[in-house]
Amino acid sequence: MIAKYFNLVEKAVHGKNLDGRVAITSSLLLSLSIYISAFNPLISTLILIFVVFFARNSVYGLIASTPFLILFSISVVFFGGDLSVILAIAALISIGSGILYGVDVEGFRKALMYFKIPGRFAFILSLAFRMFQIYVRDLKNISEVLFLTKTSKVSYYKKLMKTFVSVIVLRSISFSETLYSRDLKFDYDVEFELKREDYVLIAFSTLVLVLSIYLG
């Protein structure tokens, strides 16, 4: 079961090839819309439906977040919240997996540089993006290896975490080694190429923001 879960997470972090600037701006606009509309269910539902149709991998992101969503829903009910908060969180998760993870690592770096983030810092942030995808696959592989050892559930999770933490450390050292051994320059001009889906996304985000201002 856990291997299936990691399969979902793996699918969730490999999305479409969106323009980084558009993805970052749209994510901000859509998140802002949810906030401005005071978690209006109409805005959250609209975003949720659009993102699910726009980027299929957001469905995997939502399914993978189900345990978190269930726990969150229980807390919301316990503290007297309502469905609108749960919907808003689901919409935010879909924005994260469908739009932010829809950006190519290089696109993300270029976008950060476009927004005047220093080249070296932008590169490290974009590398974190790529490493996350590798970590998800590592976690899946470790869970598969342990699945065959038939240990108890407690021991399984203990071993999973111990191994995963070690692998993360080793991978990070290897990536640092690569960074050191490449003699890279980080400041350079970047080019962009907008596609039809980038225009659709930014247009939708702007419309939703206008609607949320009107509703808010």
């Binding site: 190519d104 290089e106 790529r130 290897s174 990536f175 690569t178 490449r182 890279l184 320059k185 350079y188």
Partner: peptide, 22 residues
């Protein structure tokens, strides 16, 4: 392990990486 040496998501960008600024 080439996996740990590839720093970008596209082949073109990876080969281009050490050339930037040089």
């Amino acid at each position: 392990h080439p996996e740990e040496q590839i720093l970008t998501n596209r082949v073109r960008d990876e080969i281009r990486l050490p050339l930037y600024g040089k």
